[in-house]
């Protein structure tokens, strides 16, 4: 991997870290299910998981 590729990858990782883990969280009232896992919970708080964590959780579920 050359330096430019590495630098672009780092920037993408920094971007993903920010959009998935930072920023303001707004109380919401919608449930979104992705691959049969609730991403957001009704009523009280809007909880967001990162896509990777969510997919990992799905893999770890018992069959």
């Amino acid at each position: 991997m050359n330096e430019i590729d590495a630098s672009q990858n780092v920037t993408v990782l920094e971007l993903l870290d920010r959009v998935l883990n930072k920023g303001v969280v707004i109380a919401g009232d919608v449930t979104i299910s992705v691959a049969d896992i609730d991403l957001l919970y009704v009523g009280v708080k809007l909880l967001v998981c990162s896509v990777e964590t969510m997919e990992q959780d799905k893999k770890n579920l018992p069959a």
Partner: peptide, 14 residues
Amino acid sequence: IPCRFGTFLQNEHT
């Protein structure tokens, strides 16, 4: 003020 990815509300009224 950026919102976190995956911020959803039911409708415009909300």
